[in-house]
Design a protein around this nucleic acid. Structure first.
Lengths: 202, 202
DNA sequence: GATCGATTGGACTGGAGAGTCCAAGATTAG
DNA sequence: CTAATCTTGGACTCTCCAGTCCAATCGATC
């Protein structure tokens, strides 16, 4: 293994992070450090050598998750027609929401709202907020192009995002009901886009 | 105090419940029984005499909260015009969401999704689900009356509820940003209703 | 092979909280 | 007054977990 003399082993740093992701997703923010250590195949002390505390581990791990998850939200193909673009946005949104890791990150952010506000804040900023902002920009551009008429693009983006997500996020977080199929996602995406366009047609 | 021989004191049962509501709202589901006891002005043992365990106390308390909160959702004045009725629905929805007790109940349901699924289930059924169902019925009636055209009222109800709630619930739960003012609520309710009607006009 | 520092496992401390136990005190029916 | 039963407070047990400590070990470099 490529590692300098007595230097911290980077592979372990990663293994710990991966384990933390899994364990926190499964057990929630109350997961024990022992469990993380076991899963990472590492001793508890080693975790404390790499990250100083549980809070720090959670922080780093959520940063990484945020980056990983929001990467999917980065590609709004603004070149298509409005309907195609909106449906695409909806599809991605639903997929991210239903991804177990997306869900668990959200739950972490909610549960930890008081104990670790920076985490909640980071998740919200990088997730919903950034995503809506990008959509709002798209809507503004379409409005300038005369294909839509959104006097308040930010509000319109909120509306569209909400239509797509609705209670589905809550439901998934509470583990209620069956997961959405690909066909469900497709139907919702198309219908939401169509209705939205009707609501905001010039 | 009106109480039978050596019978459990009903006034205390209530005091405990009230205290539990407050404490769980403030401290989250991790609040200690000692705290509840202190707040209720009662000894810990007495709580265990009335409710057998923490889980049971939480269950009873959440049932009560559910009833209290969803009572507000019970009055869709279907007699008004669609715009007025929808705006009214939106107003109530936002108010319930922003009520600290509504928020804390939701958070409880999410945190406890694994450890007490019945609670999550009850909250979801009595809250979002019942509320959307009522709205869907209203939309179906309006469709029959020819004032709207909702081929799938359940889906349309999801869309409208989502527009209104959107990221606002998440935001409030994570304690991010300022609370909505009455003026905000009014503006959102009216705009959402207008856009929805445009999307579903016959 | 000697050295330096990371790693390990396992014991340990300290704190918090659920739930139990009990002896003393209060309340009410009869 | 007495009996029955609840209430109290406070000590107590158990369990779980964060974080520390340490002696033995391992691995890369020189």
């Amino acid at each position: 293994m490529a590692r300098a003399v007595g230097q911290i082993d980077v592979a372990k740093t990663e293994a710990i992070l991966d384990a933390a992701v899994d364990v926190l997703a499964e057990r929630g923010p109350l997961a024990s450090m022992e469990e993380v250590a076991r899963r990472a195949g590492v001793s508890k002390q080693t975790i404390y050598n790499h990250y100083g505390s549980k809070a720090e581990l959670v922080r780093v791990m959520s940063d990484r998750r945020v980056a990983e998850i929001t990467a999917a939200l980065d590609a709004p193909d603004a070149l298509e027609d409005p309907h195609g673009a909106l449906a695409g946005y909806a599809r991605v949104l639903l997929q991210v929401l239903l991804m177990p890791r997306g869900l668990s990150l959200f739950r972490l952010a909610m549960v930890g709202a008081e104990t670790m506000p920076e985490v909640s804040h980071a998740v919200f900023e990088a997730g919903p907020r950034a995503s809506r902002r990008r959509l709002a920009e798209f809507l503004a551009a379409e409005t300038r192009a005369g294909r839509l008429d959104c006097p308040d693009p930010a509000e319109a983006a909120e509306f569209f995002g909400g239509m797509v997500v609705s209670t589905r996020q809550t439901k998934a977080m509470m583990g209620i009901g069956p997961a959405l199929t690909d066909a469900d996602i497709e139907r919702i995406a198309i219908e939401a886009a169509a209705r939205f366009i009707r609501a905001y047609a010039p």
